[in-house]
Every structure is written in structure tokens, then in C-alpha cells.
Design a protein around this nucleic acid. Structure first.
Lengths: 195, 195
DNA sequence: TGTAAGTTAGTAAACGTTAACTTGTTCTTG
DNA sequence: CAAGAACAAGTTAACGTTTACTAACTTACA
């Protein structure tokens, strides 16, 4: 359970990470951003690790639902509509809150941290699993080609989404993520649809 | 032109980055790894930035040729053989020298650095361009489906390769990269071959 | 009156970097 | 050919800054 003040700090932390990069996310900068002393941060988080953990857990609750949407396809919806909804929803979330992008793919940045790494690894595992299950379901409903394993379809979709977002993040959001979505959705639709 | 001693430092730096993560790659740790004082590092590199730049440039000369191979397909070689050679060659390189993996996808880690960022951005751009050109060529030779733009084929291939390597790196190389290659190659072959 | 949330002022450790000095090799020149 | 200058590559010892974090104290409010 997070307090409102904790949420304030998390929001500010994400802002810093998005603007200046993860390495600039220090207690000093965070305190400055919120407008308090450094010591005040420790009234709300026992350590920096606790803060980062809280951020990642919060992130997961925002991102995961988008992945689950792909699974909840109603009857009558074809592959294109489902993929479209999934990618556009995810991209829209990231454009709305660009701060997320800095954390979504921060595995390498936190690769060294023994406490944070399993958490990140789990997050990636979980998103991949949800996607794999979705494609398995789509194959059963004959909405998706079944000559490629669901796991590999998931890996390729996830991989291209990640690369797209990385490119976008690297370009400081100078192009519209939604535009790239069109291209990506079109390609996936053609490649993944049942022959 | 790098001196032998500079190469020693670069090798040690990669070792550290691979084992402990990029954030542990400090002048202190590098000097310790090589077995000299910190000041000795500055006899060979004017600054840490120069060291990192040298590492990335060295990396590029090792990685890029693998990408170009896809373009140089001789007559008689089909899509599967070309993709197979490309992916297997790249993965083999990374298994042989796991230290590379820490840098290959370090865009986010160096996202903040104004000097390093363009270099990384250029590297990604270049690999993507080489792949795109390759697929354009393959499409012309009717070795690859042409209802999806070369650019998007490149993005998806590159994305899934990156994700595979990230997973591998995150798992500390506990599974064989070559094994995953089989799955990936199989999937690409089916998805990309001309109908 | 107790607690939550802030403050100031500090800590030790790590960061990249530099100055001044030593050593060994190599190049030049009388 | 030996003397000495030049140089490459190392050393120790410091520098100023930044890091995460803490102790002790104040203030506002239920």
C-alpha cells in the first residue's frame, strides 16, 4: 500500500529517469524535484532500493493489463483487431507517460543489482508468458498461423515492440510512436495471419 | 590505431562490464583488473569517455561484418541458409566473447551521455540499414516474401535477436544461445519465406 | 502528547581526474 | 661508442565532487 506522498516521489522519480536517464535518478535530484531535503526522502522510503522496487512494481500494474487484453479477445474479433488494440494501447500508454519507457526496458541498467534483477527478469518472463498464452489461444481459434510455435510468435512480437520503443526513446520521442505502430501492426498482421 | 596496451585495457573493461555490469566499469575497477594504479589508465586513454568510445568502436568492427554477410549471399543460397549463417555467426561470436553482450545493447545505459549517445544511435541505425538493404535484395531475388516492407522485416528480425540476447544475458548465459538460434531461425524461415 | 514529516549538518565511500615524481628504454649526438 | 636527452609507462598522493545514508533537532497536527 503506497501513501499519496510515496506516489508523489515515484512520479518525480519517473520524471527524472525519463528526462535525464536512470543514472541521474539520485536521491539528491529526486529531493530537488519534489522540493524537499534529501533526508526527507528517507521518511517515505527506507532506501533507494525500496524506492526502485516500488517504482518497478507500480510499473508492472500499469503495463501488464495491456498484455492481458490480447488474451481477452471476444468472439468476432480477428487477429488484426486484437494486435491493433494491444499495440496501440501499449504505445498510447507510453506516449501519455513517457517516463515509463525509461523503466520498461531497464534490465541492463539494473543487471548488476542482486535484488532488482530477479524482479526485472520476472517481469519480462511474465509479459512473454501472457503473450505466448494469447497466441496459443488465437491458434486454437484459427485466428493465427499455427506452423510457428506460440512462444516464437511471442518472442518476435515482443522483440519488435521493444526495439520500436527503444528507437523512440533514443530519439527522445521526436517521432510519434503511434505512427510506427501502423507499420508494425501491418507487418504482424500479414506475417501472423493464418494462411 | 590502438596500441597493444590499449587493447589490454579494452579487454579488461569488457570483462568487467560482462561480469559485474556497466555501472561497475569504473577507472578504479579497471585499474585493479589490469593490475596497475588508477593513474596508469590515463597514460593510455585521456578520459573515461575516450575509453568507452574506443570500446564501442572496436565492438562495431567485430559485429558489423556479421550483418553484412546476409547481403553477400551467393547464388544458390536460399533464405534459410542465409538467415541461418547470419544468426548463427552472430550468436557464436557472442558466446565466444560474452563480454560483447553487455555493450551490444547498451543504448539505454548510455542514453544520458551527450557524446556517447549519437555513436550508439548510429550503430543501431547502421545495423538496421544493412539488414533492410539485405531484405530488399532478397525480395528482388524472390528469396523472401515481398508483401511486407524490408524495413519492417529488418525491425522484426533485429528485435527478436536483441530480445533473445537480452534474455540470455539476463540469465547469465545459463542456456546455450545456439539452441535458441534453432527456434528463431525456424520461425523466421517460415514467416519470411516467399509464399 | 505522540506521531508524521520536515529540517540542518554531517558521515564514509566511490567517482573521475590531476600533479609530481620514478623508472626503463630508445634515439641522438659529440 | 658512450653520454645524455627524450619519452613511454608506471608510481603515490592528493583534488573536488557526488553518492547513499544517518543523527539530532524542529514543527504541525490529531
Amino acid at each position: 500500500m503506497l501513501t499519496q506522498r510515496q506516489r508523489d516521489f515515484i512520479e518525480a522519480a519517473m520524471q527524472i529517469a525519463a528526462e535525464k536517464g536512470l543514472s541521474k535518478l539520485t536521491i539528491r535530484n529526486l529531493a530537488r524535484e519534489v522540493g524537499v531535503s534529501e533526508a526527507a526522502v528517507y521518511r517515505h522510503f527506507p532506501s533507494k532500493l525500496a524506492l526502485l522496487t516500488a517504482i518497478l512494481e507500480d510499473l508492472q500494474t500499469v503495463i501488464l493489463p495491456h498484455f492481458r487484453k490480447l488474451d481477452k479477445g471476444n468472439e468476432g474479433e480477428d487477429l488484426e483487431i486484437l494486435i491493433d488494440g494491444f499495440i496501440r494501447g501499449l504505445f498510447h500508454e507510453l506516449e501519455k507517460r513517457p517516463a515509463y519507457a525509461a523503466f520498461v526496458f531497464s534490465e541492463e541498467a539494473f543487471h548488476t543489482d542482486p535484488q532488482l534483477r530477479p524482479l526485472l527478469s520476472k517481469m519480462m518472463q511474465e509479459t512473454l508468458l501472457v503473450l505466448t498464452d494469447s497466441f496459443q489461444d488465437l491458434q486454437k481459434r484459427d485466428l493465427c498461423r499455427d506452423d510457428v510455435k506460440p512462444k516464437n510468435l511471442a518472442m518476435m512480437l515482443m522483440g519488435s515492440i521493444r526495439l520500436t520503443i527503444t528507437k523512440w526513446h533514443l530519439a527522445n520521442g521526436s517521432f510519434a510512436l503511434s505512427e510506427t505502430a501502423d507499420e508494425l501492426i501491418g507487418a504482424i498482421k500479414r506475417l501472423y495471419s493464418s494462411a
